[in-house]
Amino acid sequence: MADSIEEIQKSKKTYLAVFGALLVGTVLTVLVAEAPGWLYWLDVGEHGFDKWDAIVGMLIAGTKASLVAVIFMHLNHEKKLIYWVFFGAIFFFACLAGLLALAKGSPIFDYLFYK
C-alpha cells in the first residue's frame, strides 16, 4: 500500500494517467461502434454491429475495468485474502458466463421451439 507521502504523490500521477487512458478508451469504444466518416475502417467485422464489434467493445471495456480495479482499487498491491475474495467472485461469474456457451445450440434460443 502506498503509505508514505512521496509514494502517494507519485501515485497521484499514475491516477491522472489512468484517467486519461479511461477517457481515451471511452472515446475509442464509441468510435469503434459508430465508425463515423473517414473513420469507417474502425468498423470491424461486417457492416454494422456484429460479434466482432461486441468482442472489440468488451475488450476495451475489460481493459478499462482492469485499469480501474488494478490502479484505483489498488489491486496491484493488495493482500492475498482480497484476491481470493474478489477473483473468487470473478471466477464464479466466468462459470456463469460459461453456461451461456454450453446453452448455445439449446432449443431455448430457437423461438419456434415454443410454437
Binding site: T26, V30, A33, M58, A61, A65, F72
Partner: peptide, 18 residues
C-alpha cells in the same frame, strides 16, 4: 465507488453501443 464506475464501464457499451 470504483466498483459502481466499473459496472458502468460495461453497461455503457452494452446498452448504448451494441
Amino acid at each position: 465507488w470504483h466498483f459502481v464506475d466499473l459496472i458502468w464501464i460495461f453497461a455503457f457499451p452494452i446498452f448504448y453501443l451494441m
